[in-house]
């Protein structure tokens, strides 16, 4: 009998870490065995993570997206791991592991710092679910845009330095990376906007509760600034006529990187999360992304 409760974040974190290690060995020596082993470890990690999330859902009776910030981040990591597996099984020469696996590891490790306390189902459940889902897609899009920009710059650098295409570390063409990057930014912008709007709506509704959320708090204002930065990038990408792909990649990298770093820093170094027991020392983004948690 499988003991689902024995599966911990350490299980899949270790699997992803080994997979990353195996991917890094490709820089030393190209090896098909190591590539398959990396795919295998990622697959094992994904299975363990799925079991863990299923177990968490059963325990709390809430879907992971709205259960807690811990679960929400794990869903994001799960999506990234699944995307990595699908892409690698499609083309085993791709060198995506060194880009995606660190992100997955960051998400999993960040999740361990977040509260696991699940909130209870309330009247706002449907809106909360929509809010969390939109933000997952929005943040995933931002993360993908960030990674694609990084890949673009690596590929561009390789081509400019006339280095041969490594057998086991191939990347997509600049043309495809540029196109995917454009879609990632353009696609994530509406999700973030709607996610933020639904969060504001939830915060506005919290006025009548015992713990109202202040929309003018630094956290909210900071979040609004980040959103504006993303919108500026979005507007520039949509309206640009002729811009160097490298410039687009750099701007996307900075904008998305700034958004992601700020988001994770707020979450990691403040304790605000869904159903937190202790009041946060700093205004944190979870209050903005998940304002219902503070109601």
């Amino acid at each position: 009998m499988i003991h689902f409760d024995k599966v911990s974040t350490l299980c899949f974190f270790a699997s992803y870490l080994v997979a990353l290690g195996l991917e890094l060995t490709q820089f030393l020596r190209s090896s098909r065995i190591n590539r398959w082993a990396a795919i295998g470890f990622t697959g094992a990690g994904l299975i363990a993570q799925t079991i863990y999330l299923v177990h968490r859902t059963r325990e709390s009776g809430m879907p992971p997206l709205v259960g807690s910030m811990h679960d929400w981040l794990l869903v994001l990591a799960w999506v990234a791991a699944a995307v990595y597996l699908v892409l690698m099984l499609k083309d085993r020469h791709l060198g995506l592991g060194v880009f995606l696996l660190p992100l997955i590891l960051l998400l999993v490790s960040s999740s361990t710092r977040m509260s696991k306390v699940s909130r209870v189902r309330d009247a706002q459940y449907a809106v909360e679910m929509l809010h969390a889902s939109l933000l997952v897609f929005g943040i995933a899009g931002v993360a993908i845009a960030f990674l694609l920009s990084l890949m673009y710059l690596v590929q561009h650098n390789r081509l400019k330095h006339k280095t041969p295409d490594p057998d086991s570390f191939q990347l997509y063409s600049l043309e495809r990376l540029g196109r995917m990057n454009w879609w990632a930014v353009v696609g994530s912008a509406p999700f973030l906007t709607l996610g933020l709007a639904s969060g504001v709506w939830l915060a506005w509704n919290s006025r009548t509760t015992s713990t109202p959320v202040d929309l003018l708090s630094p956290g909210y204002v900071g979040s609004g600034i980040m959103w504006l930065a993303m919108m500026a990038l979005f507007g520039w990408l949509v309206s640009r006529q002729q811009s160097s792909g490298k410039i687009v990649a750099w701007r996307t990298l900075w904008a998305c990187g700034f958004l992601l770093v700020t988001f994770f820093c707020f979450e990691m170094f403040s304790s605000g999360i869904h159903g937190q027991k202790k009041a946060p020392a700093l205004p944190n983004l979870s209050r903005i992304w998940f304002p219902e948690a503070h109601t």
């Binding site: 390789r158 006339k162 295409d165 990347l171 997509y172 063409s173 600049l174 043309e175 196109r179």
Partner: peptide, 8 residues
């Protein structure tokens, strides 16, 4: 090696 890394 190079052309296909620039154009899809």
């Amino acid at each position: 090696d190079f052309g296909k890394s620039i154009f899809d």
